[in-house]
């Protein structure tokens, strides 16, 4: 496993849609570095032939009928929105 750099931290912040100041990136580089370093403990274990856990119980293909049903009304769904227009969610411009 490898160290994490400040540039990587900034890239990860972008992927996670978090704004990060240079100062915060510094601290985050240290914090993540420490946690990743700690996680290297796992490399003590040979897991070559171990299957990763996908689910703790033996559940497969849980299905239900694909039927329309009454759920949340449009006007209710807009109740908690920061900004709406014409019965839709409104966001800042997407294209510059």
């Amino acid at each position: 496993m490898s160290e994490i750099s400040k540039d990587q931290v900034k890239h990860v912040a972008h992927l996670a849609r978090l704004a990060i100041t240079d100062e915060d990136a510094e601290q985050m580089t240290k914090d993540l570095g420490d946690i990743i370093h700690y996680a290297e403990l796992l490399n003590e274990l040979d897991t070559t032939d171990v299957e990763p856990t996908t689910h703790v119980l033996d559940l497969k293909n849980v299905m239900r009928k694909d039927e329309p049903r009454k759920w949340i009304e449009r006007e209710d769904a807009l109740n908690n929105a920061p900004d709406t227009k014409n019965a839709q969610f409104r966001v800042p411009s997407i294209l510059e």
């Binding site: 908690n80 929105a81 966001v91 800042p92 411009s93």
Partner: peptide, 21 residues
């Protein structure tokens, strides 16, 4: 977008996501 406290400091959508979060 759908709920929560949106940052008022952004002018485009990606920045709105980032600053809100």
């Amino acid at each position: 977008v759908r709920y929560g406290v949106r940052s008022e400091n952004a002018t485009n959508m990606i920045d709105m996501f980032k600053m809100t979060r």
